[in-house]
Amino acid sequence: MTILSIAFIVAGLFFLVVAAIGVIRLPDVFCRSHAVSLTDSLGAFLMLLGIAFYEGLDKNTLKILVVLSLLYILNPVIAHATIRAALRSGLKPWRKETP
């Protein structure tokens, strides 16, 4: 069980690192928000799943699942609000320069 949870946590950390690289590399707000949503959806899911496996079946596991579902419901709302505010305040999405 410990091996399984370590594997899940390492996979989650991989996605978190990829998302951080994306936040540094990508060119504008709209693209960076994709990287942040990658963190939220898969990285947090894998890490919390690994922690739940390590805890075993307990009331803490139930609470971890509550936090996870809360993250899944709330994070799209925040991302959508940010993108809508950016779009309505007149920011133009970045495009690749066509030669």
Binding site: A19, V23, V29, R32, V36, T39, A44, A79
Partner: peptide, 13 residues
Amino acid sequence: FDRVLGLNGISTK
């Protein structure tokens, strides 16, 4: 908006 987005990422972390 980059700052707001970064704060959101920090809070998830």
